[in-house]
Structures are given as C-alpha cells and as structure tokens.
Amino acid sequence: MVNTDDFIKRLEIILDYYSLSASSFADKIGVQRSSMSHLLSGRNKPSLDFILKIIDIFQDVDLYWILNGTGSFPKNSELIQNSNLVVQNLDTPTPIDLFSQISLSEEKVSVSEKMKQVTRTSENENSDEIEKIVFFYKNGTFKSYKPNS
C-alpha cells in the first residue's frame, strides 16, 4: 500500500526537479487539473493509471521510488553512483574510460580467418569416408568402431 503523504512529498520533488506547477504537470501527463489538486491536498489517493502516466512521460522517475521511496531520483543518479563505486573499488592508478569505443575489427578478422581455415579443411577431406561409428546403449555404455584405413 502506498503511503499517500510520502507519495505527495515525492510528487512535489518531481515538480521541483522539472520546475513545473501542479497544473502544468497535470497537463503534461494528461490528467485533469482538479485530480492533481485533490491528490496534492491528500483528498484522493494516486491511481495506477496516474502513476503509469508519470513513469511514461518522465523517464527519470523510477517506479519503486515513486511508490515507496526505494531507489533514487532521478534514475541516472543511481547509475552514476554505482559506476563511481566500481571505479573507486579498482586498484588501478589510471582512470578508466567507461565510455570508450570497443574495436571489434581485429576480432572480425580473426573470425573470418578461422572460417576460411575450416572451409579449406573441409574441402580437403573426402566426405565419403567414414571416420568412426559409435553405438550408444540405453544402459549408458557405448562402443566405438573405426574402419580400417
């Protein structure tokens, strides 16, 4: 159950963060201004539809934060805090560039070379020759036969 008083406080934080009045906020999320007024006064409780509209329009609002205060607002601040903790926990003297481009060209070349080697190997083998025949039995044992070359 959502604590209405705490929800109103979090809603006011959102209004301050985006520098919106209650009426402009109501217009932005597509609800009647009177319903916003009733909600802020504590007369009405927030509906699921109201909460989903907030989350849909304002991407920085976390569902768990708006409902019960867990998490952070804006969402990005939690990501920045977590990434700072990761960088601080590393024992490297040089800063790490978390947003650098990864070069995949070397890997692509090596994969294409491997594909060429597999193709060449399979072209050189005679596909009509049987290398090995394996029989698997229900009791978990098997027998392997290799034809004489």
Score class of each variant (00 low, 15 high):
Pro46Ser: 11
Leu11Gln: 01
Ser100Cys: 14
Ser122Cys: 09
Lys138Trp: 07
Ile130Thr: 06
Asp97Glu: 15
Ile51Lys: 02
Thr4Tyr: 06
Pro147Ser: 05
Phe142Leu: 08
Val109Pro: 15
Asp49Asn: 00
Lys143Met: 06
Asp6Arg: 12
Glu113Ala: 15
Ala26Gln: 01
Asp62Trp: 09
Asn139Ser: 05
Val86Ser: 10
Tyr17Met: 01
Asn89Asp: 12
Lys9Ala: 07
Ile102Phe: 15
Lys45Cys: 07
Gly30Leu: 03
Ser34Trp: 00
Thr119Gln: 13
Lys28His: 00
Gln88Lys: 15
Leu48Tyr: 07
Ser149Cys: 06
Asn84Tyr: 10
Leu48Met: 04
Phe136Leu: 05
Ile66Ser: 01
Asn44Gln: 07
Ser105Arg: 13
Phe99Ala: 14
Ser34His: 04
Asn84Met: 10
Ile13Ala: 05
Asn84Gly: 12
Gln59Trp: 12
Glu129Asp: 06
Asn68Ser: 10
Leu52Val: 09
Ser41Val: 08
Asn76Gln: 11
Leu15Val: 03
Asp60Ile: 10
Gly42Trp: 01
Glu106Gly: 11
Lys75Gln: 07
Lys116Ala: 10
Thr141His: 07
Lys28Val: 07
Asp6Lys: 14
Asp128His: 11
Lys53Glu: 10
Val109Asp: 13
Ile102Met: 11
Leu67Val: 13
Ile102Gln: 13
Val31Met: 03
Ile14His: 04
Phe99Val: 15
Lys114Arg: 12
Leu98Phe: 15
Val87Leu: 15
Ser100Gly: 12
Glu131Val: 10
Ile66Lys: 01
Glu113Tyr: 14
Leu63Met: 14
Gln88Phe: 14
Glu125Asp: 08
Lys132Thr: 10
Gln81Trp: 12
Asn68Asp: 14
Ala22Ile: 10
Ser72Leu: 08
Ile13Asp: 03
Ile51Ala: 03
Leu40Cys: 00
Gln117Pro: 04
Ser72Gly: 06
Val86Gly: 09
Phe73Cys: 01
Leu20Ser: 05
Thr70Lys: 14
Asp60Met: 09
Leu20Thr: 04
Ser149Lys: 11
Ser21Tyr: 00
Asp97Arg: 14
Thr121Ser: 13
Trp65Ser: 07
Asn148Phe: 06
Thr121Phe: 14
Ser72Ala: 02
Ser103Asn: 12
Gln81Lys: 12
Asn89Ile: 09
Phe99Ser: 13
Lys9Asn: 05
Ile102Pro: 08
